[in-house]
């Protein structure tokens, strides 16, 4: 398997078509998308609701497979991997931030952030604690490590989610409308935090949004409409 080095494309998508089959109706969600993302990018995918943002992020996130076309993540062709290999790729290479935070409600803030490290089984208890504490301090939650998610505000929860996504030092963090459930001030703080992490940890961030203000923080922007890229770096299959 080819491995990407610094500055090269960490995500490479070619002619991807994704169709959903609802009973006998075929719903086209992505209609020939090509796209490459450089390592270290802070990329925003924008577009109206139903334009295919979530679908595209799911393909990059290896939780779904394209109907046709190729998706290369860190050099791995996702079509050629089985469920277990995809799972391990998600664990080690990808981080996820969800619109509705999706923390494990019965675990504390600390335990939520530590969880991916436990799945990796690579670190000792001390190493894990060090990494988790360090990250929780960076996201400003070092005073809340023993709280349950339900005891936190939306903004705080999304900070926990960011820490969880970053704890394994993934190459790519995917965030599907991370600010949609937050008020605009909190939302902007979250994007600032993500950007800070992008700068400090050199992690590639790909996030979707339909908020112009949020979008303005991105290094590069891709516009989706009706399952096609209309503007941005991969816009070959675009407008005309």
């Amino acid at each position: 398997m080819p491995k990407n080095t610094e500055g090269q494309d960490i995500v490479s998508i070619q002619n991807v078509i994704k169709e959903y089959h609802l009973d006998k109706v075929v719903v086209p969600a992505l209609r020939g998308v090509s796209l490459s993302v450089e390592a270290g990018d802070f990329l925003s995918i924008v577009g109206p609701s139903g334009s295919g943002k979530t679908t595209l992020l799911n393909l990059i996130g290896c939780v779904d497979v394209a109907t046709s076309g190729t998706v290369l993540i860190d050099g791995h062709d996702t079509k050629s991997l089985n469920d277990r290999q995809l799972t391990d790729l998600r664990l080690n290479t990808l981080g996820f931030i969800f619109q509705s935070f999706n923390l494990v409600p019965v675990l504390s803030v600390f335990q939520n952030v530590e969880f991916p490290l436990l799945l990796q089984r690579k670190f000792t208890k001390e190493e894990r604690a060090k990494r988790v504490d360090e990250l929780l301090e960076k996201v400003g939650l070092d005073k809340h490590t023993q709280h349950r998610p339900s005891e936190l505000s939306g903004g705080q929860r999304q900070r926990v989610a960011i820490a969880r996504a970053l704890v394994t030092r993934p190459k790519i963090v995917l965030a599907d409308e991370p600010t949609a459930n937050l008020d605009s001030v909190t939302g902007e703080n979250i994007i600032d935090l993500m950007k800070e992490m992008n700068r400090v940890e050199k992690t590639t961030f790909i996030f979707s949004t339909h908020d112009a203000k949020v979008m303005s923080h991105a290094n590069s922007v891709i516009r989706l409409a009706d399952g096609k890229i209309t503007d941005g770096k991969g816009a070959k299959a675009g407008a005309h």
Partner: peptide
């Protein structure tokens, strides 16, 4: 269900 999906997404294997 959503929790299961989340855990699977962040890298939890099926058997777990």
């Amino acid at each position: 269900t959503r929790e299961i999906g989340t855990l699977r997404a962040i890298g939890m294997r099926r058997w777990r």
